[in-house]
Structures are given as structure tokens and as C-alpha cells.
Write a protein that binds this DNA or RNA. Structure first.
Lengths: 147, 147
DNA sequence: CGTGATTGCATAGCACACTATATATTTGGA
DNA sequence: TCCAAATATATAGTGTGCTATGCAATCACG
């Protein structure tokens, strides 16, 4: 019935706002690198050296976004790129020694920030939240995929 | 214990990813303006003309972010700025005729996208999701405020 | 009444995300 | 074998968000 639309009732607005609050809370606590480096840290710690396209898929960002992020991380001495001997188009991305240390520190910080956010929920609710948001993401992702 | 940290278990990552999916779904459907214009549309439709600082508070973004958004919207003919006769520092922002029409259209689109995202949840779950994410936002907002 | 603090806005510079496009290498099939 | 399609990366341009900083107008109070 055409109620005045309130942003506090909009799932999209609330999700965006909360994502920005998560990012700000993270960046206040990070010593170096920004929030965009985190998926790269996770991927390289878990999987070892990867190509740029694999990292983009892992982080669910577009390829130019990942190229840009890796440029910043290379500039800051966190990662290095080596040509792939098996494929002349591809480069293999590795953490430097300093990058690896920062990655380990950043994982701790990320866990703290996630715990802080989820402290708003009762323990039993936390998995419910994660499950719900995963399902929402799946629906929106499918909407974008069938283009 | 040190389980390999998985991004799919990170509340911050999932919230950020879902926010990006909401934004992309919105922008695929919008005729003009971007997602950043939406809170301005909401505020001006609901409250009438407002100052830039009031709009920034309404949208929960910083003042330079709102200045930038309003510059784009002014460039695109969606809003106009008039000097506030009661305060020489302030400008009053209004929707143009075309901006008002686009705002009304955009609200419809926003409702559709919110409904699409929430279609992943059972009807009874939807308010639970909104309630949870509001509580998470409140905790993270308080963390940033006591700086 | 005047001056220091506050408030409103602008600008500069950066991070992170997107689309569109170009280039180079590899792969697959006629 | 050779050429078209697919793949990996780079570049250009834009939107949305942040912090830091500066300036002008207003306010508050001694």
C-alpha cells in the first residue's frame, strides 16, 4: 500500500550498510593492506600460489578488480608475480615473507571483527544468519548469471 | 585448532559479497543513476528538500561521499541545490522534475530487488534476517563511534 | 561585542568495485 | 598444419566509499 519506503526496512540497504561497517571495523584494526587484500590472503594461505584468474574466482570479484588489488599488494611488497612456465599468458602469485606474516595477522583480526559483529546475535542465531545470507547470495548470484 | 579459514564462513566476507550482489542486481535494472543515488531518492521523497549534511546522516555516509554523489546527480539533472536563506553555509537539495520521476521508478526497482533477494528465505524468516542484520549493524556502529 | 569553537561544504587523494576493450598466448578442430 | 575460438592479463574510464584538510559562516560565551 505505498507506505513511505524506509531504508531501515530495505534488505539491500541494510546489507550494504552492514558490509561498510564490517569493512571500517576491519580497517581500523589492520596494520597494513586494506580489506580488499583479505580474500587474497585467505586464498594464498589455504591453497598456495595461484594465478590471478584463480584468485579472482576465489574472491568472487571481476578480473580487473583483482588485477588492481594485486598491483597494490605488489607495490606494498606483499605478493610477487612469477611467469608460469607452463602458460605464457599466466602469472603465478605468491605471498612474500612479509606478506605471509601480514596475512596471518590479518586472519586473526578478521576473526575478531567477525566475532564482534556476531556478538550481536545469540550463539544459536549465528549459524542461522550465515545460512540465510548464503541463501540470499545464491539467489542474487543466479540472477546475475543468467544474463 | 587453526582450521583453515574459509571465506564462506566469514560473516564479514559474506555480508560484503551479498551487498555487492544486491548492488549489481539493482544496477542491472536501473535506467539512470546508480545505487548511490537511492538513499538520496528515499530521503527527498519522504522528507522533502534537505541539506547535504542531513542527507549524509540519512544515508549513513560521510559528508564528502554525499557531496560527490550530489555532484553526479546534479550533473545528471536529478537534483538542484539552492542557497539556504537562513544559513549562508548551507544549501538545500531538491529533486528536479525528472529526478522525482526517476526516484519513483527506482523505488519500484529497489522493492523488486529486495523481494528477489528475500525470496531465498521463507516468509517467516525475512523479518528475522532484517532484525539480525540491524543488530549486527548496531554493534559495529557502536564500535566505530567510541573512537 | 568580539573571539574561539562548531558547523556546512569543497577539494585532494586513495581504495575497491564495475564494464568495456585491447593484446597475447594457447587450444581445438577443419 | 593453420586459423578461429577461448583464455589470461592489461588498460581506460567510472561509481561509490573513505580520511585528511581547508575555508567560510554561524554560534556561544566571557
Amino acid at each position: 500500500m505505498e507506505s513511505p519506503y524506509r531504508r531501515e526496512d530495505s534488505a539491500g540497504y541494510l546489507t550494504n550498510w552492514t558490509a561498510r561497517l564490517f569493512q571500517r571495523a576491519l580497517e581500523r584494526r589492520l596494520k597494513g593492506g586494506g580489506a580488499g587484500s583479505m580474500p587474497v590472503f585467505f586464498a594464498l594461505l589455504n591453497e598456495g600460489p595461484l594465478s590471478q584468474s584463480a584468485l579472482a574466482r576465489w574472491a568472487a570479484v571481476e578480473q580487473p578488480t583483482m588485477a588492481n588489488t594485486l598491483n597494490r599488494m605488489e607495490r606494498d611488497g606483499l605478493i610477487s608475480r612469477a611467469p608460469d612456465p607452463a602458460d605464457g599468458r599466466s602469472a603465478i602469485v605468491s605471498l612474500t615473507r612479509g606478506g605471509r606474516q601480514l596475512a596471518l595477522d590479518s586472519m586473526k583480526v578478521a576473526r575478531e571483527v567477525n566475532a564482534l559483529g556476531l556478538s550481536a546475535l545469540k550463539p544459536a542465531e549465528r549459524d542461522v544468519y550465515l545460512d540465510m545470507i548464503r541463501r540470499i547470495a545464491a539467489v542474487l548470484d543466479a540472477d546475475g548469471a543468467q544474463s
